[in-house]
Design a binder for these strands. Structure first.
Length: 273
DNA sequence: ATGACGGAAGTTTTCCGA
C-alpha cells in the first residue's frame, strides 16, 4: 500500500505546524506541497527530517514554490518543465522506490513511481496576459509530459491545477460560467492531459456530492461549502489498476488560520505487473 | 459592492490569489 497526497498550503512559513500535524496523523509516502512562498534557503528540511521525511524543494521569494516530502529519498529530481522557459517555481518531479508487496515474487525488484508535483498558473482573468501565460504553460506541460510518460509509465501528476473539469466541480456553475478556472480553453487543456493516458483519481470512486478542494476565505466560503475542486491527482494508465481509493481531507480546513485548500489523497495497492 | 479574506513585502498601501 502506498499513499500520495497534494496540498496547497498558501505559505509554508505559516502552515508548517499544520503540515507536520497532518503528517503525524495521516502518514503518506509522498506529499506534494504548493505555494510555499519562500526561498530555498528558508525551507524547513530539518523539521521534516525530524518527522521522518526526506524533502526536496523548488522555491522563490513571495510567490509560488513547490516541494516533495517523502518517506523514501527522491531520485532524479527535476525542476520546472524542460523545454518551457519559466521564471516561476511551479513544478518539481522525482522518482521514488516502491517496496515490493506481500505477493511479490523472488524476482520482483519492486517498482518505481514518477511523481510530478505542480502549481498550475492561476490565470487571473480570461483575456489577460496571465491567462495567455497559463495556456502557454499548459501546452508546455503537455508536450513535456507526453515524453515523460514514455520514460516513466508509472506516473502521478498531482497539485493545484487551478482548473475545474466541469460544472460538478463548481459550487455556483452559473455564476462562474466562462470565469477563470471554468473556461473552455482551460478545460480543453485539462482534458488534453487526460488524453495523454491519465485518469482523474477522484472520479474513479463514488464521492460525496459537492466535493471541493478549495473554498474562498471570504464570505464564510467553507462553512457554506462555496468551493471548487481545482486540486487533482491524475494517475497514468499503468497505475490505474492499483488505485484503491481517493479522497479530499477537509479536516485541515477546519483549523485556525487554515490554508484555503484541503489535501487530496490517493491510495495505491501493490499488484504485481 | 471592481467588495469580502489572507499572505507577503515592508511600514501604509499594493499586489496577488481563486
Amino acid at each position: 500500500m502506498m499513499k500520495l497526497a497534494t496540498w496547497n498550503v498558501n505559505s509554508l512559513t505559516v502552515r508548517l505546524p499544520q503540515v507536520l500535524d497532518w503528517l503525524g496523523t495521516h502518514p503518506v509516502d509522498v506529499l506534494a506541497l504548493q505555494e510555499l512562498k519562500m526561498t530555498d534557503d528558508k525551507f524547513p528540511h530539518a523539521a521534516f527530517k525530524a518527522a521522518g521525511y526526506h524533502s526536496v524543494c523548488f522555491g522563490q521569494k513571495t510567490y509560488n514554490g513547490v516541494a516533495l516530502i517523502s518517506r523514501a529519498p527522491a531520485q532524479q529530481v527535476e525542476r520546472n518543465i524542460p523545454g518551457f522557459t519559466d521564471d516561476m517555481a511551479r513544478v518539481i518531479s522525482a522518482t521514488f522506490a516502491r517496496e515490493p508487496g506481500p505477493t511479490a515474487t523472488a524476482d520482483d525488484t519492486g517498482q518505481t513511481i514518477r511523481v510530478v508535483g505542480a502549481y498550475f498558473p492561476n490565470g487571473q482573468e480570461p483575456g489577460s496576459d496571465k491567462f495567455e501565460y497559463k495556456l502557454a504553460w499548459l501546452k508546455g506541460l503537455r508536450a513535456w509530459l507526453r515524453a515523460e510518460m514514455v520514460n516513466h509509465p508509472h506516473l502521478v501528476l498531482m497539485g493545484d491545477y487551478n482548473i475545474t473539469f466541469d460544472d460538478a466541480d463548481v459550487w455556483d456553475p452559473e455564476g462562474m460560467r466562462d470565469q477563470i478556472h471554468c473556461t473552455d480553453e482551460e478545460r480543453y487543456e485539462l482534458n488534453a492531459l487526460i488524453t495523454l493516458g491519465l485518469h482523474d483519481a477522484h472520479r474513479l470512486f463514488a464521492q460525496p456530492p459537492k466535493s471541493y478542494s478549495w473554498w474562498d476565505y471570504r464570505d464564510f466560503g467553507f462553512r457554506r461549502n462555496h468551493g471548487m475542486r481545482i486540486d487533482h491527482i491524475l494517475i497514468s494508465n499503468a497505475l490505474k489498476p492499483q488505485v484503491s481509493a481517493c479522497w479530499i481531507d477537509k479536516t485541515p480546513r477546519k483549523n485556525e488560520r487554515p490554508s484555503d485548500h484541503a489535501p487530496v489523497v490517493v491510495e495505491l495497492v501493490w499488484r504485481p505487473l
